[in-house]
Amino acid sequence: MAGMKIRASMAGDVAEIKALMNHVMETGLRKDAKTGEIVPAHHITNVTATVGGKVVLDAQWGGGISKNPYLAFKVKGAKAGDKVVIETLDNKGEKDSAEADIG
Protein backbone atom coordinates (compact mmCIF):
# COMPACT_ATOMS: atom_id res chain seq x y z
CA MET A 1 0.00 0.00 0.00
CA ALA A 2 3.00 2.25 -0.20
CA GLY A 3 3.20 5.31 -2.36
CA MET A 4 1.81 8.25 -0.42
CA LYS A 5 2.55 11.67 -1.90
CA ILE A 6 2.68 14.90 0.10
CA ARG A 7 2.72 18.50 -1.08
CA ALA A 8 3.19 21.29 1.43
CA SER A 9 3.39 24.99 0.72
CA MET A 10 3.10 28.26 2.62
CA ALA A 11 0.27 30.74 2.06
CA GLY A 12 1.09 33.68 4.32
CA ASP A 13 1.81 32.24 7.77
CA VAL A 14 -0.25 29.11 7.16
CA ALA A 15 1.09 25.90 5.65
CA GLU A 16 -1.31 24.00 3.42
CA ILE A 17 -0.52 20.30 3.39
CA LYS A 18 -2.05 17.93 0.85
CA ALA A 19 -1.62 14.17 0.77
CA LEU A 20 -2.68 11.46 -1.67
CA MET A 21 -2.54 7.90 -0.37
CA ASN A 22 -2.82 4.49 -2.05
CA HIS A 23 -5.38 2.27 -0.34
CA VAL A 24 -8.37 0.12 -1.36
CA MET A 25 -10.47 1.46 1.54
CA GLU A 26 -12.90 -1.48 1.68
CA THR A 27 -15.77 -0.79 4.06
CA GLY A 28 -16.58 -4.42 4.86
CA LEU A 29 -20.16 -3.81 3.64
CA ARG A 30 -19.62 -4.25 -0.10
CA LYS A 31 -20.52 -7.47 -1.87
CA ASP A 32 -18.35 -8.86 -4.64
CA ALA A 33 -20.39 -8.51 -7.85
CA LYS A 34 -19.43 -12.01 -9.10
CA THR A 35 -19.40 -14.17 -5.98
CA GLY A 36 -22.00 -12.26 -3.97
CA GLU A 37 -19.78 -12.55 -0.94
CA ILE A 38 -18.97 -9.68 1.40
CA VAL A 39 -15.55 -8.17 0.72
CA PRO A 40 -13.77 -7.99 4.10
CA ALA A 41 -13.04 -4.59 5.59
CA HIS A 42 -9.60 -3.26 4.70
CA HIS A 43 -9.13 0.42 5.33
CA ILE A 44 -6.87 2.96 6.96
CA THR A 45 -7.81 3.40 10.63
CA ASN A 46 -5.28 5.99 11.80
CA VAL A 47 -3.49 8.94 10.24
CA THR A 48 -0.93 11.02 12.11
CA ALA A 49 0.80 14.10 10.77
CA THR A 50 3.72 15.96 12.31
CA VAL A 51 5.26 19.28 11.32
CA GLY A 52 8.73 19.98 12.68
CA GLY A 53 8.36 16.95 14.97
CA LYS A 54 5.09 18.10 16.59
CA VAL A 55 1.86 16.21 16.07
CA VAL A 56 -0.61 18.52 14.32
CA LEU A 57 -3.20 16.02 13.14
CA ASP A 58 -4.24 12.71 14.71
CA ALA A 59 -7.15 11.17 12.83
CA GLN A 60 -9.23 8.01 12.99
CA TRP A 61 -10.84 6.83 9.77
CA GLY A 62 -13.51 4.33 8.82
CA GLY A 63 -14.09 2.75 5.42
CA GLY A 64 -16.19 5.75 4.38
CA ILE A 65 -13.15 7.65 3.17
CA SER A 66 -12.86 7.15 -0.61
CA LYS A 67 -10.44 4.71 -2.21
CA ASN A 68 -6.94 6.21 -2.63
CA PRO A 69 -7.62 8.82 0.05
CA TYR A 70 -7.07 12.55 -0.33
CA LEU A 71 -6.45 14.69 2.74
CA ALA A 72 -5.67 18.38 3.09
CA PHE A 73 -5.21 20.43 6.24
CA LYS A 74 -3.67 23.74 7.30
CA VAL A 75 -1.13 24.54 10.00
CA LYS A 76 -0.53 27.99 11.39
CA GLY A 77 2.95 28.87 12.64
CA ALA A 78 4.74 26.42 10.38
CA LYS A 79 7.47 27.76 8.13
CA ALA A 80 9.15 26.96 4.85
CA GLY A 81 11.68 24.17 5.30
CA ASP A 82 9.80 22.46 8.16
CA LYS A 83 9.55 18.72 7.68
CA VAL A 84 6.08 17.22 7.31
CA VAL A 85 5.70 13.51 8.11
CA ILE A 86 2.42 11.64 7.57
CA GLU A 87 1.97 8.07 8.77
CA THR A 88 -0.96 5.73 8.24
CA LEU A 89 -2.01 2.46 9.82
CA ASP A 90 -4.75 0.17 8.52
CA ASN A 91 -6.98 -2.44 10.14
CA LYS A 92 -4.59 -5.22 9.05
CA GLY A 93 -1.65 -3.50 10.73
CA GLU A 94 -0.09 -2.32 7.47
CA LYS A 95 1.72 0.98 7.72
CA ASP A 96 2.72 3.63 5.24
CA SER A 97 4.50 6.92 5.61
CA ALA A 98 5.87 9.78 3.58
CA GLU A 99 7.60 13.05 4.25
CA ALA A 100 8.17 16.37 2.53
CA ASP A 101 9.63 19.76 3.34
CA ILE A 102 7.29 22.72 3.30
CA GLY A 103 8.09 24.65 0.10
Partner: peptide, 28 residues
Protein backbone atom coordinates in the same frame (compact mmCIF):
# COMPACT_ATOMS: atom_id res chain seq x y z
CA UNK B 1 -20.52 11.72 9.08
CA UNK B 2 -22.77 10.72 6.18
CA UNK B 3 -26.16 10.28 7.79
CA UNK B 4 -27.56 7.47 5.59
CA UNK B 5 -24.38 5.41 5.15
CA UNK B 6 -24.32 1.83 6.49
CA UNK B 7 -21.64 3.06 8.88
CA UNK B 8 -22.36 6.82 9.19
CA UNK B 9 -19.11 7.80 10.91
CA UNK B 10 -16.50 8.60 8.25
CA UNK B 11 -13.63 10.20 10.16
CA UNK B 12 -12.55 12.01 13.30
CA UNK B 13 -9.71 14.50 12.83
CA UNK B 14 -7.91 15.60 16.00
CA UNK B 15 -6.22 18.96 15.48
CA UNK B 16 -3.48 20.47 17.64
CA UNK B 17 -0.23 22.49 17.69
CA UNK B 18 -1.40 25.12 15.21
CA UNK B 19 -3.56 22.94 12.96
CA UNK B 20 -6.43 25.16 11.84
CA UNK B 21 -10.11 24.24 11.92
CA UNK B 22 -9.98 22.90 8.39
CA UNK B 23 -9.96 19.53 6.68
CA UNK B 24 -10.58 18.55 3.09
CA UNK B 25 -11.07 14.96 1.94
CA UNK B 26 -13.20 12.70 -0.27
CA UNK B 27 -15.89 10.44 1.15
CA UNK B 28 -18.24 7.65 0.06
Amino acid sequence: LAEKNGFPLIADFGLQNGAEGYVSTRIK
